[in-house]
Nucleic acid binder design. Structure first.
Length: 490
RNA sequence: GCGGCUAUCGUUCAAUGGUAGGACAUCAGGUUGUGGUCCUGAGAAUGAGGGUUCAAUUCCCUCUAGUCGCCCCA
């Protein structure tokens, strides 16, 4: 351990991936002699801190300059898409009357275990959980809805006028097998309407989802919708389904037989041939709804028809999160050429807040997967918001000039003029080259002579002409040139 | 979690059982303080560990990562 930390501090100034390789190589080349020692250290560390799951290779011990599996950096080159998504999502949320709520990424484990349900795949296999130093069982949230519900209860939002509309953006964590569009840290934007059970809100929420994806330029989508009924009727249906599946047990593939007890809905949802055959004649949730849910669902569909939003009713649609009652829906990409996945989903959870220990409060919400929205935008080559580019370059020569450049830079910036620079370089030719490459309209040259005179050279890059002006007038001169070139350049 | 395919400079594309090469990008130059193109030069890679071999980047195994399918979802 001390070895490693001294190494990383020594090299931390160099940066980037070369470093990672250098460290790895260096260590491995000398590891022959210190093999036993290193191993010993690793073993004690393993047993005391980390769960002794799989044996880790020595190479694995050395991987520290790499993101965790399924997690990734959102690099500068990709940010235009993310800006766009965040911008559209936030604006739409505001227009639909949602207030922003930001939540911690970690919560008590029990919130999710009780809220989502112990039987669900998410809780059983996909939770990032750990004990805090003070011994609390903590999880990284796999979902935003439960945090919102918790916050709603904790801060007594039930006294607010109803419905309470809350909107959040942030990462959630699920331990799944990564692939395109499937990450272990994924970003969601989440919308919840709490305190109202009117079917019009179910429709409004779907309308909002539709509006967001449309504004992002994403097409080729399909809304799938279903109703799972009240908690009570779900239990009854589940029993019914369970006994049906038991009777067809021998027709199911081996790996699905265990699911009959744990998650029978997954069998209905499966696209495996034999499962589909069995599912085809299975009792359908929609035929076993309680009368109120049935009426509610009918109403939701009527609203959607009125809105002109097309949808398909998918009787096998059941969501992985156990808190849903009545309406559930998902938005699927139907774009060709790539994996198919849902880019959003949600539903009604009228009984969750009551089950968490508050007065019964109906609610509906949904989440959009931001990573997948970005992916879709790339697929359809959607237009993205691009940052305004600097149209002025500030070049500087000499120590005194460099000192004055910082001041000049901030004068321009404060007057709303975006400026590019390369203060680290002193060579004028190089700086002019950079100015050219950046495509600026004006270059300011501040050299030793100008610094002494309190002037600066203002060069019009389009015409090539330049003039020397007093430093304090530079901002105005620059602005004037920019104004004149604005119509010329495309 | 299960199965298939893949892994070479920052990116991309070559090559090889015996010195790994190009392009783009980066950096430095092309005489004193002025521009895209051009010229010169530099740095930079066989994912990790093990095996077969005189010799492995190349063949084999394991791991890791990526990708595709299943499962599930966002």
């Amino acid at each position: 351990m001390p070895q490693r930390s001294s190494k990383s501090s020594k090299t931390s100034k160099v940066g980037e991936t070369k470093l990672a390789k250098a460290v790895v190589k260096k260590t491995s080349s000398r590891s022959g002699s210190s093999k036993k020692l290193t191993k010993g250290v690793a073993v004690t560390k393993k047993t005391s801190v980390v769960k002794p799951t799989k044996k880790r290779s020595r190479a694995e011990d050395l991987i520290l300059l790499q993101t965790l599996r399924g997690m990734r950096d959102l690099l500068p080159g990709e940010q235009a898409y993310w800006e766009q998504v965040r911008h559209v999502v936030s604006r739409e949320a505001r227009e639909y009357g949602f207030s922003r709520l930001d939540l911690p990424v970690a919560e008590y484990a029990n919130l999710f275990v009780r809220g989502i349900g112990e039987d669900t795949e998410i809780v059983r296999d996909q939770l990032y959980s750990f004990d805090s130093p003070s011994g609390e069982r903590v999880v990284l949230r796999p979902d935003l809805t439960l945090g919102v519900a918790r916050s709603y209860i904790q801060h007594g939002m039930n006294v607010l006028s109803r419905p309470v509309k809350l909107f959040s953006i942030g990462p959630v964590f699920r331990h799944e097998r990564p692939k395109e569009g499937c990450y272990r840290e994924l970003w969601q934007s989440n919308f919840e309407i709490i305190g109202e059970e009117d079917a019009v809100l179910d429709a409004q929420v779907i309308q909002l989802a539709d509006s967001i994806v449309n504004r992002l330029g994403i097409r080729h989508l399909q809304f799938q919708i279903n109703s799972v009924g009240s908690y009570q009727s779900q239990k009854a249906y589940r029993t019914l389904l369970g006994s049906y599946l038991q009777s067809k047990r021998h027709k199911l593939p081996q790996e699905f037989r265990d699911l009959i007890d744990t998650n029978p809905f997954a069998i209905l949802d499966s696209s495996e041939d034999k499962c589909m055959q069995v599912a085809a004649s299975a009792p359908q949730a929609i035929d076993h709804l309680d009368p109120e849910s049935r009426a509610h669902f009918k109403e939701v569909l009527e609203y959607l028809d009125e809105l002109g939003i097309s949808y398909v009713i998918n009787p096998h649609l059941v969501r992985g999160l156990g808190y849903y009652t009545r309406t559930v829906f998902e938005i699927w990409s139907t774009q060709d050429g790539g994996s198919t996945y849902a880019i959003g989903g949600g539903g009604r959870y009228d009984e969750l807040i009551g089950r968490l220990g508050c007065e019964p409060t109906p609610a509906i919400g949904f989440a959009l997967g931001l990573d997948r929205l970005v992916l879709e935008m790339k697929r359809v080559k959607a237009r993205v918001y691009s940052e305004p580019k600097p149209r002025v370059f500030l070049a500087q020569i000499g120590v005194l000039a460099k000192r004055k450049s910082l001041k000049m830079f901030s004068d321009l910036e404060r007057n709303g003029v975006l400026v590019a620079e390369s203060f680290g370089r002193g060579n004028l030719k190089t700086q002019m080259r950079m100015a050219e490459r950046r495509g600026v309209d004006v270059t300011l040259v501040l050299g030793q002579k100008e610094a002494l005179d309190g002037t600066v050279i203002v060069k019009d890059m389009v015409s090539g002409s330049q003039e020397t002006v007093l430093a304090e007038k530079a901002v105005n001169v620059v602005k004037k040139i920019l104004k004149n070139t604005v119509g010329v350049k495309k």
